[in-house]
Design a protein around this nucleic acid. Structure first.
Ligand SMILES: Nc1nc2c(ncn2[C@H]2C[C@H](O)[C@@H](COP(=O)(O)OP(=O)(O)OP(=O)(O)O)O2)c(=O)[nH]1
Ligand SMILES: [Mn+2]
Ligand SMILES: [Mn+2]
Length: 483
DNA sequence: ACCCCACGCCAC
DNA sequence: AAACGTGGCGTGGGGT
């Protein structure tokens, strides 16, 4: 669990409603952030004492989380197949590339160095090669990706180092690490934590299946290792622009509401403006930049950071931010209201009343206050999205059992530790606003329709909620599923 | 074998 | 580094 202001001297806690539920999974492994009782490390005291009545009665989100916990256990028990042979091939190819790059770098600088050690790298870059220090970390001179991009034209080893970093990350964190989690059934069984994030989002660990690479060709290659078993396919369902739709509802912003009623893609529209291309010509990569700008601006990014991130000058970044809030005027008003309430109550909450206490709001240090304010703005939006998909998961889990009962007279469910596991259609992953299922190809159209319906109607918003469906033989080759 | 921290970076 | 937010993990470096 992260502190709100990691870099600052004194640490505080993010208080939250206590709950008796901990992580869920087959293989606890090292329970890094939670103790055996599922209570939060570093937060020994309950955030809010419960009165006698609330000890016995779960509120809406507690009841929701209780039901979700059972589903998470099933997801963990089912697991997902990882193609070990495929990863072995990737490892071989990419490790050779890594060695090549490493040798090239050594011959350029004239000696060996541990390229994975930022400390050793600093000496090479800034002392030996005398490259300019772009920015500093707490303890020294930064060598992160942004820094290296700026330094790239100054020395031939930098582009190689960037390649090395990317490749090493993918190999060490995924290609070589995932096989260590594969059980004798050929599957990885991640642990999902129902209260993994302060906002109500889940988290996933051992391994984390919510941060599997997706960008670029190499990301797609890694996702190809997540496969459906013989005779089944994968079905994926991802909400469209979900937090912007929730924002539209919470802020009741006319610009956002109109856009969604007209079926517009706001991420693409933002990208169209940034890259000065017609919206229909926006590429996937450009849309991603638009998406990041939309959320970063909403959650308080400044013009300086935006300018750096987009590679534009400060004035242009300022203009983008102004235009954003001019386009969606009620967003500023809503943010001010949230902060006012937050400071009065000491907490913020989602549409469903999931509370997050933010003591930083009353901190003496202004910088800490500012961190608290940005968290306070984020929680109602990110947390409502979490409530929404959790509700959908509960409804979908019920419906799947009904569908199975109907289409097959024979018993296709397995009872395992009081969990009813469905052998035909299994929910196997949740990635914040996406659900992944393993299912027999029969009736995938009907199941997809049901999943889409449950997700789109889990919460009633004042704008349409849309879900994109995809199917494929593996997670790297998913194609749109129409009707 | 386990722990911590800093750095850096993957995803949503 | 920074006035986007929410996470988890691998490595290096140091320690028990
Ligand atoms: N603050 C912040 N939130 C993010 C960021 N990336 C993703 N999120 C949150 C907001 C998104 O609505 C939500 C789901 O991520 P997705 O990648 O599915 O994006 P989204 O649903 O907005 O667009 P989509 O139509 O699915 O491509 O996660 C980010 O960079 N910053
Ligand atoms: Mn989405
Ligand atoms: Mn998504």
């Amino acid at each position: 669990m992260k502190s709100l202001f990691e870099g600052l001297e004194f640490k505080s806690l993010i208080s939250r409603i206590p709950s008796a539920r901990g992580p869920v999974g087959l293989y606890p492994r090292p329970m890094s952030s939670l103790d055996a009782a599922g209570t939060r490390r570093g937060a020994p005291a309950p955030a809010t004492p419960r009165d006698a009545a609330s000890l016995a009665t779960l509120n809406v989100t507690e009841e929701l989380d209780k039901q979700v916990t059972l589903i998470l256990q099933k997801m963990s028990t089912t697991g997902i197949i990882v193609d070990l042979q495929f990863l072995k091939g990737l490892s071989k190819d990419w490790s050779k590339k890594l060695q090549d790059i490493e040798q090239q770098i050594y011959s350029i600088i004239g000696h060996q160095v541990n390229l994975n050690s930022p400390k050793q790298l600093q000496v090479v870059l800034f002392d030996e090669l005398k490259l300019p220090v772009v920015r500093k970390t707490k303890t020294g001179r930064s060598t992160d990706e942004d820094t290296l991009r700026e330094l790239a034209p100054s020395h031939p080893m930098i582009p190689l180092l960037l390649q090395y970093r990317q490749l090493f990350k993918l190999v060490s964190t995924y290609v070589d690490a995932l096989p260590r989690f594969v059980g004798s059934d050929g599957r990885v069984h991640s642990t999902f934590n129902v209260e993994g994030a302060a906002t109500g989002r889940l988290s996933s660990q051992n391994p984390n299946l919510q941060n599997i690479p997706v960008k670029g060709e190499m990301g797609g290659e890694i996702r190809k290792a997540f496969v459906a078993p013989i005779g089944k396919i994968l079905l994926a369902a991802d909400y469209s622009q979900i937090e912007l739709r929730i924002l539209a509802h919470l802020a009741q912003d006319p610009g956002l509401i109109k856009a969604f009623n007209e079926g517009l893609d706001i991420h693409a529209a933002t990208a169209s403006k940034i890259f000065n291309v017609p919206v229909e010509k926006v590429t996937k990569e450009q849309r991603m930049v638009g998406k990041t700008m939309n959320f970063a601006t909403l959650y308080g990014q400044g013009a300086h950071a935006l300018a750096r991130q987009l590679g534009v000058d400060y004035a242009t970044a300022q203009k983008y931010i102004e235009e954003y809030f001019a386009q969606f005027p009620k967003v500023r008003v809503w943010k001010a209201e949230v902060l006012e309430n937050a400071k009065r109550n000491g907490y913020v909450e989602t549409l469903w009343g999931r509370k997050r206490y933010i003591p930083e709001l009353s901190a003496a240090n202004r910088q800490i206050q500012a961190f608290g304010e940005r968290a306070a703005i984020n929680h109602p939006v990110q947390g409502t999205a979490a409530d929404m998909i959790k509700k959908a998961m509960v409804e979908i889990d019920k419906s799947l059992l009904n569908i199975v009962d109907r289409i097959s007279g024979e018993k296709k469910t397995i009872n395992d530790k009081r969990l009813t596991i469905n052998g035909l259609y299994s929910m196997i992953l949740q990635v914040h606003d996406e659900l992944l299922f393993e299912c027999i190809p029969d009736n995938v159209g009907e199941v997809g329709k049901m999943v889409k319906d449950k997700m789109e109607n889990a919460l009633k918003l004042s704008v349409p909620v849309l879900v994109d469906l995809k199917v494929g033989p593996n997670w790297g080759e998913m194609k749109a599923l129409n009707h």
